[in-house]
């Protein structure tokens, strides 16, 4: 059993990420191909919407993979290729939304909410510790009563 698990663990260690691109689409130059795959992973497939074009089997994703590779091969920079796709499909095609005025709430919102929550919690706890000063020590009379009570009802 343990050996089986070990074999499985070894096998999964070698399993690369699944890629939809078939070998005929891939560029011969491995450096260019890895750039193409890197860009493809950042681009949304517009048919399936939550997959990247590199992972999708949709025809449109395939077309975009081919075009991304053509543009890379023709010597365009990564930014130029991305801009080509964004010019046609808008920011929506980027799986990682760009940081700009219209997406400020998206990027900053969660952190702002977290900070507001922390500030509120801090204020709440500070107020509570300030509001309740430690009680004064017991007087001699109170101590005697406490001892009497403990004698009658010993803590179990």
């Amino acid at each position: 059993m343990r050996r089986l698990l070990l074999i499985l663990a070894c096998l999964t260690a070698f399993a690369g990420p699944a890629i939809a691109a078939d070998p005929s689409e891939m560029l011969k130059d491995p450096a260019l191909e890895s750039r193409a795959q890197h860009l493809g992973k950042e681009l949304r497939c517009l048919v399936c919407q939550s997959e990247s074009i590199e992972d999708s089997n949709a025809d449109l994703a395939r077309d975009l993979r081919v075009i991304v590779r053509e543009r890379i091969q023709s010597g365009e920079s990564d930014d130029q290729v991305m801009q080509y796709v964004v010019d046609r499909y808008g920011d929506y095609v980027l799986l990682r939304p760009p940081f700009k005025a219209s997406t400020l709430v998206l990027w900053v919102g969660p952190f702002a909410l977290l900070l507001a929550g922390l500030a509120a919690a801090a204020a709440f706890y500070r107020r509570r510790t300030n509001a309740a000063p430690p009680p004064p020590p017991l007087s001699a009379e109170e101590k005697r009563r406490l001892e009497a009570l403990l004698k009658d009802h010993p803590p179990s």
């Binding site: 517009l46 449109l60 395939r62 077309d63 975009l64 081919v66 075009i67 046609r88 499909y89 808008g90």
Partner: peptide
């Protein structure tokens, strides 16, 4: 790969 359609932003 449908270049014209992609230029039109067709999905």
């Amino acid at each position: 790969p449908g270049r014209a359609a992609i230029d039109f932003g067709v999905t």
